[in-house]
Amino acid sequence: MWRDLAPIGRAADSGGYRRYAWTAADADCRAWFKAQAESRGLTYELDRNGNQWAWLGDPAAGGAVVTGSHLDSVPDGGAFDGPLGVVSSFAALDELRRRGAEFTKPLAITNFGDEEGARFGLACVGSRLAAGQLTVDKAYELRDADGITLPQAMERAGYDPTTIGPDPDRLARIGAFVELHVEQGRALDLTGNRVGIASAIWPHGRWRFDFRGEANHAGTTRLADRRDPMLSYAETVLAARREAELAGAVATFGKISVEPNGVNAIPSLVRGWLDSRAADQQSLDTVVAGVEKAAREYADRHGIDLDVVRESFTPVVEFEHTLRDELARILGTDTPVLGTGAGHDAGILSASVPTAMLFVRNPTGVSHSPAEYAAEDDCLAGVAALADVLEGLACSS
């Protein structure tokens, strides 16, 4: 499975992946998922929001145990973030069949669409729509860098966008959702464990900072006469680092758009996106407020207009304790339980169904990069752990 999936959407120049929602690479990933489902005799479904499902047993029976993740990527992302969870889900089912497990509950494997938000700027679009955390009106307003709206992209990919929206009936079928994911940090590497259990997802969000100045000639305009928004932006990037260090949090300006974007032109607009995450809400609020306060001071100093817009936000997610404790019972109480600053579909769904997560060791901690890596032995340990969990949840009386 890994060899078949690996070439899809891989960029020759960087070695990273560009599997963006509703593109040709996304279509190839979806075809791969469907083929894996059908080759195992599973019932394949594409739901109203473009999420893929592969069912073993009758979905209408209720109390289903669902596993899976996503197949899309960030720009030049790694091979493991998302796909490891989907591949491991099919592999865990194969392992359970090898064991001769008898299922007493329906089992499903899923691929949630547009988890990374690389194209339209909002993470977890597929699961947010299903859970009613993204309205249809807001979804229709999403645009990519070329101005293509989400509905237009879906139509071009052969999907009907008029069907999108909350999917409570489908979610009501689910008794538990367990997502396996490569760890996006080094906690397991530091403890020497192959597999861990998630405790919580830090609160996190994305904020857009629009610095508006005055375009002018880079060679003839005196420094004293400039209204250069790049200066305010650059100072704000440094402020974000300072505020995050003070609060024990993280803050990153990782995306920027400049107009008119000429080498010999002073910008008229610098638009930067802040991603910030912290272990608790108060710390996150402190960081973002501090960054915005500094940005406004810098903007005033340079004669720059500033708008700040919160584009997305996810509060802290404490995974359902009963299910989390059940995973610890199945895998052993010595299995480490750890928090994460990364968002996931499991976090979105946690408001609607009991959810839990398993992490597989990442020896370098690198993620969202072509250098992302997990050793084969650790991946196989993750498959075995997921199989044990699914057997404990779906094969119990």
Rank of each mutant, 00 (worst) to 15 (best):
D4N: 09
L5F: 13
A6T: 14
G15V: 01
G15P: 00
Y17Q: 06
R19G: 08
A27F: 08
C29T: 10
A31P: 03
D47Q: 13
N49I: 03
A60N: 12
A64Y: 03
V66F: 00
H70S: 10
V74I: 15
F90P: 12
L96F: 09
R99N: 14
R99M: 11
F103M: 06
I109V: 12
D114S: 07
A118F: 00
A118G: 05
F120A: 04
G126A: 13
A130H: 07
Q133V: 06
D137I: 02
K138D: 08
Y140N: 15
D144L: 11
M154P: 01
P161A: 07
T162N: 08
T163N: 13
I164K: 01
I164C: 01
I174L: 06
G175L: 05
G175T: 04
R186I: 14
L190G: 00
N193F: 00
G196V: 06
H204V: 13
D210E: 12
G213M: 14
E214R: 15
E214V: 14
E214L: 14
H217W: 02
D225M: 13
R226N: 07
L231T: 12
R241E: 15
A251I: 11
E259N: 05
N261A: 06
I266D: 01
P267C: 04
G272T: 03
L274A: 09
R277I: 03
R277G: 05
A278G: 11
A279N: 06
Q282V: 11
T286G: 14
V287W: 02
E292Y: 00
D300T: 05
R301E: 13
V308Y: 01
S312E: 01
V316R: 15
T322V: 10
E326A: 09
L327Q: 09
V337G: 00
V337C: 02
G339N: 04
G341K: 07
D345N: 07
A346R: 10
S352K: 10
V353P: 02
P354Q: 15
V366C: 14
V366R: 15
P370Q: 12
A387N: 11
V389K: 05
